[in-house]
């Protein structure tokens, strides 16, 4: 992805939503909702977090940051990268995932200039809150149908990760439309179409990590969910 800069030195570089894409109303709304969400995540984590959760929080944030740097190619000269919210939500629960994603997105915004300062609320809302909760409940739904065998967990992980990316991209498309960036009939199919493909990568990575955890430390999948 950084090679992109070398090839096109004058070009702006967009991975998360930069400032300028969203209007004031959307920025304000998403900031308020995300601040409330993160506040609630902190409150619940303060209540339920145990010592054995602590290293998992650090490892997941580190992994999600590292994996987000690895853009993988999808069709038509486009790339995608992991969001990681579904993985975090499957391992630690949706509110813990909101905390982890917020750490990652805030660091990416402040240190790596990835994602706008004003758009931070929207990025946390889409990739933190929407992706975490959709991933978590899709996983629970899938494993309730498929059973909690190894196969059920892997398929559940794939499906929920795919769904979480698709939903986050649809919410992002709605924000762009509300902001007047692009009409809904244009931006929604485009965002959903590309992210239905990117979601396959998200699903494969999520299932691979679950498989690795099952093979090495299966007990880590049974931590209390927050």
């Amino acid at each position: 992805m950084q090679l992109h800069l070398i090839e096109n030195p004058g070009k702006r570089y967009v991975i998360h939503i930069p400032d300028g894409f969203l209007n004031v109303a959307t920025v304000a709304t998403t900031c308020v909702v995300s601040a409330g969400g993160v506040g609630n995540a902190v409150r619940l984590a303060n209540k339920k977090l145990r010592e054995k959760h602590v290293p998992m929080m650090g490892v997941l944030a580190a992994f999600i940051f590292a994996a987000q740097m690895l853009n993988f190619p999808i069709a038509g000269g486009t790339s995608g990268h992991l969001i990681g919210a579904a993985l975090a939500a499957i391992l630690l629960g949706p509110w813990a995932a909101v905390l982890i994603m917020s750490c990652v997105l805030i660091a990416q915004c402040l240190i790596f200039q990835d994602g706008g300062l004003l758009a931070l609320g929207a990025n946390i809302f889409n990739m933190g809150i929407v992706a975490s909760f959709s991933g978590y409940y899709l996983y629970r739904l899938a494993t309730s149908f498929l059973g909690s065998s190894r196969r059920g967990k892997l398929i559940g992980g794939f499906v929920s990760a795919w769904g979480s990316v698709l939903l986050a991209s649809i919410v992002c498309a709605i924000e762009l439309t509300v902001s007047g960036a692009s009409p809904i009939m244009v931006v929604l199919p485009a965002m959903a179409g590309i992210h239905a493909l990117i979601g396959i990568g998200e699903g494969l990575i999520t299932a691979a990590v679950i498989s690795l955890v099952l093979a090495t430390r299966a007990d880590l999948l049974e931590l209390q969910k927050i």
Binding site: M1, Q2, L3, H4, E7, Y13, V14, I15, H16, I17, F21, A66, M69, L70, N71, F72, P73, G76, G77, T78, S79, G80, H81, S169, C172, A181, V187, A190, M191, I194, H195, I198
Partner: peptide, 15 residues
């Protein structure tokens, strides 16, 4: 990370 795809990502491509 230097091996990452240099193509624009999903949002950048749509934009």
């Amino acid at each position: 990370s230097p091996l990452a795809s240099s193509s624009p990502d999903g949002l950048e491509r749509v934009a």
